[in-house]
Structure formats: structure tokens, C-alpha cells
């Protein structure tokens, strides 16, 4: 199918884009890489009256180090640029490990980092990643700008804390804490598809080797990226023995997620995968935090 008619604007500056957002507000959609939006429009699942195309605003496509030792990624940065960025590989190894799992190379060539965050697909990896690392989203409008914590940004199925006139312009990734370890695990029935379940893990061990700050975020199991708080509580202050990790993973599966059933897998199997993948992710992340090769 073809999309219903829409008005199209291609601003060349951010100011111009924000002006257009202020004018069109609710009826407008931002066109970034178009890998989700165009498909939903062609299927007539979305019918925005106005498209505001950000592809002609070069300053939105950047990857920069931050003073704190993290990275700032512009919203229009293509997935492939993130995937191949040496800075990302060094400062955000979890993101570096995640990128190859996002769809196919053709889609990564076109899809954007900010687009995936703003689209907030509950099956997508990047929102879960952003929660795991406590990233922040920069939202800009004619009224000003604000940084939104990832935990506050994703509020439900395909919905975020963005106001109708706001655009995501950048994402800030904190530096990896000292004595921290990470892991990303997923199972997809077919290469390049959305995962049945994926998990993004980042945790820190204290001087005694006990778990300090455990961040375990899942996609594919709820209405948005799901942070496994009950599992984290099991680990907090504990040395990550195999038994503790097993208990935490079991709690993640039983208490933290509420997965749906569809033609690809039942809810029960997704819950099983949460258990398996949490165990693997926690084991690998703890090993990395302890300085072991994984």
C-alpha cells in the first residue's frame, strides 16, 4: 500500500524544525530514518498530516565524547555509525555489542539512533539499553530544552514523555563506572528480526566483590523496556555466586516481566527466556566486572 496524503517539510536547521513542530504539534510526525514510520504509514497504521524530515540537519548527526568520559550521540546518527564508532566501542561497550543485533545492515544504514529511542518499540533493543545504562534524552522545542532520564522517558507502548512539540535531538551515555561489567543476550527466531526476548545488563561490584548497582533491562516482554527491579534487589549487596544469580534470574522471570503471547512464542516461553538470558547476562557481566575475560 501507499501512505495517505501528507504535507512534507524538510527544514535545514534545527530552529526551523522546532518552529514547524510548534506550528503543527499533534498532527506532525518527525521523519528520521523512516525504518518504522514509513512502514506504518504504508500499512495505514499511522496517518500523520505533516512530516517534518530531519535528514537535512547535519548537526544532529554526531558522536562526541563528554567531559565525564561518556558519549553524546546525535539523534540523527545512523545505526551503522554507532556500530562502527571507535569512541562508542571504548566508552560504551554494551552499546557496541548491541548494535549488530538491530535488524539487518540495510536497515542499520538508514535507521537512526534517536529515531529508535523516540519510537519506543517495546521489542527494540536500544530503549532497554538506555535504561540499563541510565542514559538521558535531550528533548528540544521552541519553548526550550530538557534532559529526560531514560527511566522517565519511556512511559508505555510506543509512548514517551515527549511533548507534541518536542524533538529528541541527542542522547547522553554516561561513562562506564569503575568495577562495572556488562552483557547483552538475546534470542531471535531469525536473524535480523526483533528478539523474542533480549536483555541489557550493566552492574558494578563494590570493593568486597558484592553487587552494588545492578541494572537489568529487557525488551520483548512488556509495554516498554522493562527494568528488573526485583531481580536487582536480590543481587544488591550480595556476592554474585551462581546460586544468587540463579535466584535473581528466577525472580526476574516470575516478578519483573509480564510477557505476551503471539504467533512467534507463548508468554510462558518468553518468561523461560527471561530466566535463561538473565542468568547468562548476569554471569557474563559479573565476570567482566571482576576483570575476567569473557
Amino acid at each position: 500500500m501507499k501512505p495517505p496524503p501528507f504535507a512534507y517539510h524538510a527544514p535545514t536547521t534545527l530552529d526551523e524544525a522546532l518552529q514547524l513542530m510548534a506550528e503543527h504539534g499533534y498532527g506532525a510526525k518527525v521523519l528520521a530514518g523512516g525504518q518504522s514510520l514509513i512502514a506504518t504509514m504504508n500499512f495505514r497504521l499511522a496517518a500523520p498530516a505533516v512530516l517534518i524530515d530531519l535528514n537535512k540537519i547535519p548537526e544532529l548527526s554526531i558522536i562526541q565524547p563528554t567531559a565525564e568520559g561518556g558519549a553524546l550521540v546525535g539523534a540523527m546518527t545512523r545505526h551503522v555509525q554507532v556500530e562502527q564508532s571507535e569512541l562508542i566501542a571504548r566508552t560504551a561497550p554494551l552499546l557496541h555489542a548491541t548494535m549488530p543485533h538491530i535488524a539487518h545492515p540495510q536497515i542499520r544504514n538508514r535507521g537512526t539512533f534517536g529515531g529508535s529511542i523516540a519510537h519506543a518499540d517495546p521489542a527494540a533493543e536500544l530503549p532497554a539499553f538506555l535504561r540499563a545504562v541510565r542514559g538521558q534524552v535531550l528533548a528540544q522545542s521552541r519553548r526550550g530544552q530538557r534532559w529526560i532520564d531514560a527511566d522517565d522517558f519511556f512511559i508505555g507502548l510506543f509512548s514517551t514523555a515527549l511533548e507534541p512539540d518536542e524533538i529528541v535531538t541527542a542522547v547522553r551515555l554516561p561513562a562506564m563506572p569503575a568495577r562495572s561489567g556488562w552483557s547483552m543476550q538475546e534470542l531471535s527466531r531469525r536473524h535480523g528480526d526483533f528478539a523474542l526476548v533480549a536483555v541489557e545488563a550493566l552492574l558494578t561490584l563494590d570493593a568486597d566483590g558484592a553487587c552494588d548497582d545492578v541494572r537489568l533491562a529487557f525488551c520483548g516482554v512488556g509495554e516498554g523496556p522493562v527494568l528488573a527491579t526485583a531481580a536487582a534487589a536480590v543481587l544488591q549487596g550480595q556476592r554474585p555466586t551462581a546460586e544468587v544469580i540463579e535466584a535473581a534470574a528466577a525472580i526476574a522471570a516470575s516478578d519483573d516481566v509480564d510477557p505476551h503471547s503471539d504467533v512467534h512464542a507463548t508468554s510462558a516461553y518468553r518468561r523461560h527466556l527471561v530466566d535463561v538470558l538473565a542468568k547468562r547476562a548476569l554471569t557474563a557481566a559479573c565476570a567482566r566486572a571482576a576483570g575476567e575475560e569473557v
Binding site: 547483552m184 538475546e186 534470542l187 557474563a284
Partner: peptide, 11 residues
């Protein structure tokens, strides 16, 4: 190799 990143392929 990117398919399933389990530790040490022990599974």
C-alpha cells in the same frame, strides 16, 4: 557468532 552471545558456548 553474533547470534547468541552466551558465555564460552557452554550451553
Amino acid at each position: 557468532g553474533a547470534y547468541s552471545l552466551d558465555v564460552g558456548h557452554s550451553h
